[in-house]
């Protein structure tokens, strides 16, 4: 069986080196500004750090993909264009883009820089993907995390572009690139500012019986003592609702848990997927080392026709729990 490509996150140069050393086939990262969807304090790369990181990866046979996957703010398009140009100058192997204006700019002005379509573009059917491939020369599409394995197989039968799917990490089941929950609560979003639930708007307060989590002044969660804590996003919030006169508290949008599709790798390979993506540019080099080495063993075993060794990544999951998400969809 052909070997699946493992695409791994790096929020810092140390994490990039950790990913390459742990067996990443490719590493994705972003510049330290709002051109990428992980624009968090203390994270991301300067131009010089990217060039050094590319050299480190290439010397060890790994690729570097640069995420420029937010949507330009009117009047500030130059920042996104400079990011594309600087990614090519640094020797990046591809740019991961979402906005059609940035895609058009890259195709016209930097045609030798390979173009991948970010999950932020939310291209989830063959017509949309073929449009991006034919119009902007997109070679690979990162599929949204709302598709079943069967739907991914159906897409792959009708497109020429490669597909990349998420297999581990934070799970976002919204229409990515179009979610306005963070923007509604804070005025900033992953789509324009590059950060979902920006840290500057997050407040944790320890009260007598619970840890209270607030985002933009809204209470998202009250975690009892020692109970697992979620990310501070509205979609993982625990809210009180009334149904049929009965009041109950629940995770209205989605439960706080991570995606782990390790056991689905054979199915994803059979569905025609080219690359597997690990989420987590905001995570530490310890996370990167552990997750990348675990999935590299699984990918190698699959290629050799051996059963994948069991992973032990539960402790790294949000809420300490994992799901196969939409790949094994039991809802509609």
């Amino acid at each position: 069986m052909r070997k699946l490509e493992l695409v791994c996150p790096a929020g810092t140069p140390a994490a990039l080196r950790a990913a390459v050393d742990a067996g990443a086939h490719a590493v994705y990262c972003g510049f330290a500004d709002e051109t990428n969807a992980r624009n968090f304090p203390g994270l991301n790369f300067s131009r010089a750090e990217l060039a050094t990181g590319v050299a480190y990866a290439h010397a060890r046979g790994a690729k570097v993909l640069v995420a420029i996957n937010t949507f330009p703010i009117p009047g500030r398009e130059a920042l996104w264009r400079e990011a594309v140009a600087d990614a090519e100058t640094a020797g990046a192997d591809a740019a991961i883009l979402a906005d059609i204006g940035v895609l058009a700019y890259a195709a016209e002005n930097h045609p030798r820089l390979r173009r991948h379509l970010s999950v932020q573009a939310a291209a989830a059917n063959p017509d949309a993907i073929n449009f991006y491939a034919e119009t902007f020369g997109v070679r690979r599409v990162v599929l949204p995390r709302v598709l079943t394995v069967a739907e991914i197989a159906a897409i792959n039968r009708e497109i020429d572009a490669e597909t990349e799917v998420f297999v581990f990490g934070g799970l976002c089941v919204m229409a990515e690139g179009r979610c306005a929950l963070s923007s509604w609560a804070t005025g900033e979003s992953p789509n324009l500012s590059g950060a979902c639930s920006p840290a500057a708007h997050v407040v944790y307060a320890e009260e007598a019986d619970a840890l209270v989590l607030k985002l933009g002044g809204l209470t998202l969660h009250r975690s009892p003592k020692d109970a697992p804590q979620p990310y501070p996003t509205l979609c993982k919030g625990c809210f009180a609702t009334e149904q049929g006169g009965a009041r109950r508290e629940s995770h209205v949008f989605e439960d706080p848990m991570s995606l782990d599709a390790a056991t689905l790798l054979p199915d994803l390979a059979a569905a025609g997927v080219t690359a597997l993506k690990i989420e987590g540019r905001q995570r530490s080099r310890a996370y990167v080392s552990a997750v990348v080495s675990s999935f590299r063993k699984a990918v190698d075993a699959l290629a050799a026709g051996r059963p994948a060794p069991p992973g032990a990544l539960a402790a790294l999951c949000e809420g300490g729990d994992a799901t196969q998400g939409a790949y094994r969809k039991t809802w509609r």
């Binding site: 840290a199 320890e206 697992p228 804590q229 905001q282 530490s284 996370y287 809420g319 300490g320």
Partner: peptide
């Protein structure tokens, strides 16, 4: 660099307060 900060936070092994950014 032996453990992941987010994971320690999920499990409540560490806590943070004040200026989150």
């Amino acid at each position: 660099g032996a453990v992941d900060g987010d994971a320690l936070f999920f499990s409540r092994d560490i806590a943070m307060e004040g200026d989150t950014a």
